[in-house]
Design a protein around this nucleic acid. Structure first.
Lengths: 98, 98
DNA sequence: TATTGATATTGCTATATACGCATAAGGCGG
DNA sequence: CCGCCTTATGCGTATATAGCAATATCAATA
């Protein structure tokens, strides 16, 4: 965890992930997903922003492997990657204290 | 810590802080400071980038209250805000696991 | 196959951020 | 007061990101 055992690539990766999280709408999405599994339309309604924007933000979360998707009777359901859920929540909690 | 007990302002604040951290050079600075107190020139040497850039990054960390400064015989020493140090480190550790 | 509903992508403009360079500001010894 | 050392800031350019509107994709089904 020390800087000298962290390569440039790892640093880059980590700051990429942080950038992905560092956005109000995406944080809201992560909050919503930390409670439930949701499809895109549910997220659109919950967030009150247009569909295209939600899809864009989901794309960024997907590209950073923060969420995963599964198709179920016509809808795409998003959820937090279960292996990462704990860390995502703890991370946000830490930031909350900063 | 739930989204519904977090106001828009708090969300905005938190994502600001995350953005401040989500940068390789700034993360390195935080790592360095988590070990020692350093003045600007020491950071410049340790990071191998030019002084103006280090000052710019320190400014961003300062504006987000992540670090504090004290002047001592001609140098400006930077350190992590001690109240936040624990959370900053833990946050980085969480991200490392994501 | 044509249509509809759900989601993703693309093109565009506005705004923000990064970084290098030059320079400014501030304190101290001469 | 003049340099000198340390640190901070401003400016210009390149690049990245946000958000919107339009459109594409894809699956189901009428």
């Amino acid at each position: 965890m020390e800087s000298d055992i962290m390569t440039e690539q790892e640093l880059e990766r980590i700051s990429q992930i942080m950038k992905a999280v560092a956005h109000p709408t995406r944080m809201k999405i992560l909050f919503l997903l930390s409670k439930d599994l949701n499809n895109v339309n549910e997220l659109v309604k919950a967030l009150g922003v247009n569909q295209a924007l939600v899809s864009q933000q989901l794309r960024i979360l997907r590209l950073n492997n923060l969420v995963k998707t599964e198709k179920k009777n016509g809808f795409v359901y998003y959820s937090l990657d279960p292996d990462k859920k704990k860390y995502i929540n703890k991370m946000i909690e830490c930031i909350y204290n900063i």
